[in-house]
Amino acid sequence: MKLTLGALAVFVAVAGVVSFVFLVLAIGTDFWYIIDMSKWERNSSQLSSHSGLWRTCDGERYDPQCWPFVNPFGNANNFTESHRQLLGMHGTFVVLLPLSVIVMVIGGMVGFISILARAYLMLLLTGVILLFGALITLSGISVYVAYSAAAFKEALYISSRRTLEDINIHFGWSMALAWISFVAELLTGISFLLASRIVAAVRRQDQAI
Rank of each mutant, 00 (worst) to 15 (best):
K2Q: 15
T4L: 08
L5I: 12
L8R: 06
A9W: 03
F11E: 01
F11Q: 02
A13W: 06
V14P: 04
V14R: 06
V18H: 07
V18G: 10
S19V: 05
V21K: 06
V21Y: 07
V24R: 04
L25P: 06
A26Y: 01
G28K: 07
T29S: 13
T29D: 13
D30Q: 10
F31E: 15
D36L: 03
D36F: 04
S38P: 00
S38W: 05
K39G: 12
R42T: 15
S48T: 03
S48H: 01
S48D: 03
S49R: 08
S49N: 07
H50C: 01
W54L: 10
W54Q: 07
R55E: 13
R55C: 07
Y62T: 14
Q65I: 15
F69G: 02
V70R: 15
V70P: 11
N71R: 06
G74P: 03
N75I: 13
N77P: 06
N77F: 09
N78L: 15
F79R: 07
F79I: 07
S82D: 14
S82F: 10
H83E: 09
Q85R: 14
L87A: 07
G88T: 06
G88D: 12
G91S: 08
G91I: 05
F93H: 07
V95H: 09
V95P: 05
P98T: 11
V101R: 01
V101C: 07
I106C: 09
G107E: 03
G107M: 04
G108Q: 03
M109S: 13
F112M: 14
R118Y: 05
L121P: 00
L121E: 12
M122E: 05
L123T: 05
T126P: 00
T126D: 03
T126I: 02
T126W: 05
V128Y: 03
V128A: 09
I129S: 02
G133W: 00
A134N: 04
G140Y: 04
I141K: 04
S142H: 10
Y144V: 07
Y144A: 11
Y144F: 15
V145F: 07
A150F: 05
F152D: 12
L156P: 01
S159A: 15
R162S: 15
R162C: 13
E165N: 11
I167E: 00
I167Q: 01
I169W: 08
I169E: 11
G172F: 04
W173Q: 13
S174D: 02
M175T: 06
A176V: 08
W179R: 09
S181P: 11
A184S: 10
A195W: 00
R197T: 09
I198D: 06
V199L: 04
Q205W: 11
Q207K: 14
I209L: 15
